[in-house]
Design a protein around this nucleic acid. Structure first.
Length: 656
DNA sequence: GTTAGGG
DNA sequence: CCCTAAC
């Protein structure tokens, strides 16, 4: 088994995420926050209590009938969440099916904290206590015009911010406050309309628990259950938000020729599974593994972890996943989800299959950043892409070194759609949707382009790559790339920052819990070492040789000959860390092949014929040379052998 | 660790 | 680009 260097953070089958924990200073920051929370929460809860009482009167039955409401209406309700726990039914699908973008309020929460706790505990024995404080995640607080609501939310958000696990799983498509609600709703429930709160589950105990985020999380483990699937539709905007909404409103329902904006519903549509982290990475993945070819590697789930130590001391260098296993496709599910989501929405797509989603990837509001040291996760509702930002900062950089950029659009890969002329527009829409879903469902990865060049080295920092806060980032681009089905899609984008995928990373990071029992069971499955290895080790990204590289290679080989690849490497590619001598050897092999085939059969970036001619010449020369050398050697060996034999013979004669 | 060659 | 065998 090949296991590359990796680091385990965690214990008992619960693995800490790839991202190194924040430096102490960051964590100190957290405690400061916590203090603030404590200070302000009293007030907030007072307000809450009075508000709740009032609202209770006004909407007496709403609280008690919540469960049924949840069933009848397109509302996210505690019932829905619980259902999902039992049936793994994505909550999101439900709420997306109904209602319109504008109005619906929502009821989030877990009407029965107890049962939620149970669910969680069953699934993640360790989850409730682990890793909650390990990362400071940030969810925006609110800047609501409703002062009371805002205060309350702020408090809640802040105290919650430590419980990143929950946060992480919240998809970015909804208002950040939603996550707050999700959190809060363990204790009390937000009423329909968004501004109503009732004290449903708010007990003294619950309130107290807010004082300590950790405790909070432990008390309401459901919050950190990765499987909760608390995905709240962005269209529900229960509370006015002054800080974020502007962006949301900016998203237009525009249709361009090649880049289609999905407008509001973009938020939903552009939230591809690939961006979604394995909320269910725990049990759902296991189940999936059990029924797919991937099950074989389940025991290796641990290896989803990162393989390198932090780049910066105490820094935030994220690591991308190395293992295929980290990838869980939920295509069918996603397709379904996608379709349902999109059903009543205008999905526009152009012939070239482009669509765009707007994504503002950085928040101007630093207060949104939960962690001063740079690990920040922002989930916002500006668009459908579950986008988040992780600011990576070395301790040596000031906070102002954040790179700010916005992703105007993603373009999906080319889609081919064939549909009869007699088909309805509706079916065309569905067809397109299916095509898109297929792409999304099979997984996406994000490419980063700078000055039109693909940035391939995922290990470089933004700074090193030239994406600095001072740089004009107009030339920065992102692309969505389908991940070949067989390929090990990096669950997270390999780029450490800026990408929607990060959410998944965070969540993985949050919980890569393998229920011991499952892991055990799977571990007993006899594995074919071969397949195991091949499934686990990620293939290096393909990096086609440039003409200049070919030139250098040819030149080197002309001088030192074939068969001395180490020398070639040292001579011409010493600084090219990504080119091993094996690579050079392989390249030479393909060059020779390329030179021998007809030009029209050649693919990729054309190599100048002149170079190819030199390749053939050098190859012929050194082949001959080697042959000569070989025969020489053979002759020499023969000579020596003969000499020995003769001498031995002589000696033998003597001895006789 | 290098090299060669098949995949 | 990966893998393996041979050295």
């Amino acid at each position: 088994m090949v296991v590359k260097k990796r680091q385990y953070y965690g214990f008992n089958g619960f693995h800490m995420p790839p991202v190194p924990r924040a430096p102490r200073s960051a964590r100190r920051g957290l405690s400061l926050n916590k203090k603030k929370v404590e200070d302000s929460q009293l007030c907030a809860f007072d307000l809450l209590a009075s508000l709740a009482g009032k609202l209770l009167q006004e909407s007496e039955s709403s609280a008690s009938s919540n469960a049924s409401e949840a069933n009848d209406q397109p509302i996210i309700g505690g019932g829905g969440v619980k259902c999902e726990q039992a049936e793994e039914r994505p909550l999101k699908a439900e709420c997306l099916d109904h209602g319109s973008c504008g109005e619906s309020a929502f009821v989030t929460g877990f009407t029965s904290p107890n049962s939620d706790q149970k669910c969680l505990l069953n699934a993640f024995p360790h989850a409730e206590s682990c890793s909650i404080l390990e990362r400071s995640s940030m969810i925006s607080n609110s800047n609501s015009s409703e002062k009371v609501g805002a205060d309350l939310k702020t408090v809640i958000c802040k105290s919650k911010s430590v419980c990143e696990n929950f946060t992480g799983k919240v998809e970015g498509s909804f208002d950040s406050r939603v996550s707050c609600d999700g959190y809060v709703d363990n204790g009390f429930r937000r009423q329909q309309g968004g501004d109503g709160l009732d004290t449903g589950g708010l007990t003294a105990e619950n309130a107290c628990s807010l004082k300590d985020p950790m405790e909070m999380c432990m008390k309401f483990p459901a919050l950190i259950k990765p499987d909760n699937d608390v995905e709240l539709p962005s269209r529900r905007e229960p509370v006015p938000n002054a800080s974020i909404p502007r962006r949301r409103n900016d998203t237009k329902l525009g249709v361009r020729d090649d880049d289609l904006n999905f407008s509001r519903c973009k938020k939903l549509l552009t939230k591809p599974k690939a961006f979604r982290p394995p909320q269910r990475i725990g049990d759902r993945r296991i189940r999936k593994l059990l029924t797919s070819k991937y099950w074989k590697v389940a025991p290796k789930l641990k290896e989803c972890e990162l393989s390198k130590p932090a780049f910066f001391e105490g820094g935030m260098k994220p690591h991308y996943r190395k293992r295929k296993l980290c990838y869980s496709r939920e295509r069918y599910q996603h397709d379904t989800f996608y379709k349902r989501k999109c059903t009543d929405r205008s999905v526009v797509m152009t012939s070239d299959g482009g669509f765009s989603s707007e994504s503002v990837c950085n928040s101007p509001d630093k207060s949104l950043t939960g962690d001063k040291n740079g690990t920040a996760v922002m989930l916002h509702g500006a668009n459908g892409v579950s986008s988040s930002v992780i600011g990576h900062q070395s301790p040596f950089h000031s906070k102002d070194s954040h790179v700010k950029l916005s992703i105007k659009s993603f373009r999906v890969p080319e889609l081919f759609i064939e549909i009869p002329e007699t088909a309805t527009v509706g079916s065309l829409k569905r067809t397109v949707l299916e095509a898109v879903s297929a792409v999304l469902g099979s997984g996406l990865r994000v490419g980063v382009l700078l000055h039109g060049m693909k940035v391939r080295d995922d290990n470089r920092t933004l700074l090193q790559t030239g994406m600095t806060s001072k740089e004009n980032l107009d030339t920065l681009g992102f692309s969505l790339e389908p991940i070949p089905v067989q390929a090990p899609p990096p669950l997270c984008t390999e780029d450490p920052a800026l990408l929607p995928c990060d959410t998944s990373q965070l969540i993985s990071r949050a919980l890569v819990a393998v229920p011991p029992i499952n892991a055990e069971a799977l571990a007993m499955v006899p594995l074919n070492p071969k397949s195991k290895r091949s499934e686990l080790v990620q293939r290096r990204t393909r990096r086609p040789f440039s003409v200049s590289e070919v030139e250098a290679l040819v030149h080197a080989v002309e001088e030192v000959g074939t068969g001395r690849w180490r020398d070639v490497k040292l001579r011409s590619f010493e600084d090219a860390d990504h080119r091993t001598y094996v690579d050079l050897k392989d390249k030479w092999k393909t060059l020779v092949h390329t030179a021998r085939i007809a030009p029209q059969q050649r693919r990729g970036e054309p190599v100048p014929q002149e170079l190819l001619d030199r390749v053939l010449a050098a190859h012929a020369y050194w082949s001959q040379h080697q042959a000569k050398q070989h025969s020489k050697n053979q002759a020499a060996i023969l000579k020596i052998t003969v000499a020995h034999a003769v001498r031995n013979g002589v000696e033998d004669n003597h001895s006789i």
